[in-house]
């Protein structure tokens, strides 16, 4: 078993290289990179031209373009610059953001606590709500309660999180003024006492969390419900019941534990989701998290940041997959990885 996990760990390396090579190549081949963006900005209207300069008629010489390419590291062949990038990554250097001019690592870690905060709370709350709800729905399968909750959960699933977010802001924050319009904490946060700090944070978190969670109920709830239904039909529950256990006991002692397996499988994948968040929700609530950073980096063609986030999220995803398997093995000792595959 440990040999299996060791092999899985080693296989991360080729996969990781594959992912990064692909995306790296893509960033090189796609037009609209930082240089072209500079060229466009120097010329087109819409942006105010600076008062005393007019660059309109000027074109850059080959030398100057070459200099720009050097500055952005676009002057070398793709593979060569990829390996230069990779050798830096191995030394834990993700390079510098072309947009912010500061190390990518700093850019990411500044926003990490915010993303983790929302990610972890969303995940915990989702589990806390979905597991009991799934159990309830399984036990009360095809009753009005089941139908009603299905409807609610599906509506939450169907309406995109950002739409819920915007509606919440318009109603609860702008109209009723119950909550602030956005941001992570208030302006004078540093001066508050500990309880005030907690309240302030909570106050800012309610609406974004609502938007985050609305969509994530459906998958988890139904996974739980289906798994439990399946186990309720299984022979051992039948046997347990035949031995005189009540329905309730049979479920709680036998079916439930096994039903948690698929939920556990899902756990590892959540890790990378925690990080990436939803850039649209972050955008409307003005939360400076990783999702927004990634989206802005992509739109502004800040490729070092794009690659940096990819490195972190894909590593987490790969590790998360392995973690999932570990979870499964822990929940269900009967499963032995690596033996039959």
């Amino acid at each position: 078993m440990s040999a299996y996990f060791l092999r899985r760990l080693l296989l991360i390396i080729p996969t990781f290289i594959g992912i990064t090579v692909l995306v790296f190549t893509l960033t090189r081949l796609v037009p609209g990179g930082p240089i072209e963006r500079m060229l466009a900005e120097a010329q087109l209207g819409g942006q105010k031209a600076s008062a005393h300069q007019q660059f309109g008629s000027q074109a850059l010489s080959e030398d100057q373009l070459q200099q720009l390419k050097e500055y952005y590291g676009f002057d070398k062949p793709i593979l060569q610059s990829y390996f230069e990038w990779l050798s830096k990554v191995v030394q834990l250097d993700l390079g510098e953001s072309t947009r912010y001019g500061e190390p990518v690592w700093d850019t990411i870690t500044q926003r990490l606590p915010i993303s983790i905060y929302y990610g972890v709370i969303t995940m915990v709350l989702t589990y806390l709500i979905c597991i009991p709800l799934g159990i309830l729905k399984a036990i009360k399968n095809r009753t009005p309660i089941d139908n009603l909750t299905s409807l609610i959960v599906f509506i939450g699933h169907a309406v995109p999180g950002y739409v819920i977010g915007i509606a919440c802001i318009a109603f609860f924050a702008a109209h009723l003024e119950w909550f602030p319009l956005g941001g992570f904490v208030s302006d004078g946060f540093e001066d508050l006492s500990l309880t005030e700090k907690a309240l302030d944070l909570l106050n800012h978190s309610v609406l974004p969390l609502l938007a985050y969670m609305a969509g994530s109920f459906a998958v988890m709830t139904f996974m739980m419900k289906n798994a439990l239904l399946e186990n309720m039909a299984a022979d051992y529950v039948r046997t347990a019941s035949a031995k005189g256990m009540t329905f309730r006991q049979a479920i709680y002692h036998h079916a439930l534990r096994n039903s948690l397996i698929p939920i556990a499988t899902h756990f590892g994948q959540n890790i990378s989701i925690i990080l990436t968040g939803s850039f649209l929700i972050e955008k409307i609530f003005n939360i400076d998290g990783i999702g927004l950073l990634g989206f802005e980096a992509l739109m502004e063609r800040d490729y070092p940041v794009v690659m940096g986030i990819l490195v972190i999220s894909s590593l987490l995803f790969l590790l998360g997959n392995i973690l999932s398997d570990l979870c499964v093995a822990w929940v269900d000792p009967r499963i032995r990885f690596g033996e039959q595959r």
């Binding site: 296989l11 080729p14 996969t15 594959g18 992912i19 692909l22 995306v23 893509l26 796609v30 990436t276 990634g294 992509l298 990819l310 999220s313 894909s314 995803f317 790969l318």
Partner: peptide
């Protein structure tokens, strides 16, 4: 399996947005 792992790790929506 590796190819699939690679593909499922690439943020597809982002790539499509770039393209």
């Amino acid at each position: 399996q590796r190819i699939i792992e690679i593909l499922s790790n690439i943020p597809g929506l982002y790539v499509i947005m770039i393209i």
